[in-house]
Nucleic acid binder design. Structure first.
Lengths: 229, 229
DNA sequence: CTCCTGATTATTGTCCTACATTATGGAGAC
DNA sequence: GTCTCCATAATGTAGGACAATAATCAGGAG
């Protein structure tokens, strides 16, 4: 059974573990559903509905809800079930502050590994894919492209814990809720990404970290403005 | 039933959610068991054994395992069950690097809130409790005291996401595995903590962050030495 | 009319049993 | 000695049942 094939093709996802389970299917679909608008923050997730919707029994549904709760996507109150988390603005800012640090760290470490050819290729591909979207482009696919960019960046950082934790920050969920207010256009975001990648490829650690932090700083400032005004 | 009593007493834990469930009892006991040596890394966790040990059915046991997997405490392989995670040295270093950044951030934010009286009190109390242990002191209680220190620090940072994520980094699990190699004595750790607290209380953000980062830097260096040697 | 109280209902938390699916280990063939 | 095939063990899921709790609603006291 020693299959010597080099690497299993898994170009899309950040998940390292081969989660075959139904549970993961549900988890993924809920997250994707948030991107696509099928689910929306605040919505209640009743076990009965989910069992019907996915055609599975309550066991896997409950497990999926637990996973989603662990990832802070749903709020789980003991006898009252699950509800898709609603971020108020303060929490969104908190999230961005944490993400700012972690992505900054990722960029710094990635720059340190700037001679990793596979990492460079993946990062460049993710950047190109992100650029391919039209300025008014789609919601869910763009979100996935952004995830892939951050995934490639953290992969190049070669820090397992970082790869594990950063997705759990769920930057994209902020987007789902605050898209109208943030209105960062795709072009400027792409410029930010490009700047990060340039610094990373050149091995300039501090510049890479700074560029990553600067990108988040804008969103933070904008949300802070909304909070006070 | 609108019980107007102000706040339920929960002074010890970082958990904000009132998890009544059996699941959480198991999760907590496994973590504590790791501190106490009842469980050890690499050990397999069979559902049948856990159902017997805790006197519950497979449902809650499986849910607990999922939660533990989400917190990176157990490794869950699709058809082969759960196993308490074994960190090889590289992963331990990765963990400390991430923790270094996050705790540094926490210290900086805490310093920014240095006028928060309640936060100061809690942090001081945690520091005192940590100091109360004898230099050769107990394992599990000391680990809890350390957790409380970081809990108080992040609480004072007043960043919800940080409070949520930092515990999931599970710095303490490194200790469980690498205690013999690390041999940071309690006195020097306490000095580090004291330095952080001093800077925090004085509101010196950069110094607080630097002190926190320096504390982790030692452990990282030590592990790097082990890795190469 | 409002507020409080008690019963009804909906939903979750847990248990139990059963079966499908998949890894693991060993027996036997070559 | 290596390989194939099968028995065993363990997990993944289904489905039904019941207890416990929260939300809801009806009715009565003031």
């Amino acid at each position: 059974m020693n299959n010597a094939s080099p690497a299993p093709p898994r170009p899309d996802s950040l998940s390292d573990q081969p989660e075959t389970a139904v549970r993961e299917v549900i988890v993924r679909d809920v997250v994707r559903g948030l991107y696509e608008g099928r689910y929306e923050p605040g919505q209640r997730l009743r076990e009965a509905e989910l069992t019907q919707a996915y055609g599975v029994s309550r066991g896997p549904v409950r497990e999926a809800l637990n996973v989603l709760a662990a990832r802070n996507i749903v709020e789980l109150t003991p006898q009252r079930g699950a509800r898709l988390r609603v971020l108020h603005i303060g929490e969104a800012i908190d999230t961005l502050v944490v993400a700012q640090n972690l992505v900054g760290l990722a960029a710094r470490l990635a720059a340190r590994n700037h001679d990793d050819a596979a990492g460079r290729a993946r990062l460049q591909a993710a950047l190109d894919a992100h650029a391919a979207f039209p300025p008014e482009g789609g919601g869910a696919e763009l979100a996935v492209a952004r995830d892939n960019f951050y995934g490639a960046l953290t992969a190049m950082a070669a820090n397992i814990q970082l790869s594990r934790i950063l997705p759990s920050v769920h930057i994209h969920l902020i987007r789902v809720q605050f898209r109208p207010m943030l209105r960062i256009n795709d072009a400027s975001r792409h410029r930010d990404y490009q700047r990060i990648v340039d610094a990373v490829f050149a091995g300039r650690e501090r510049e890479a970290e700074g560029a990553a932090r600067a990108h988040f700083e804008r969103g933070i400032e904008r949300l802070r403005g909304l909070q006070q005004g």
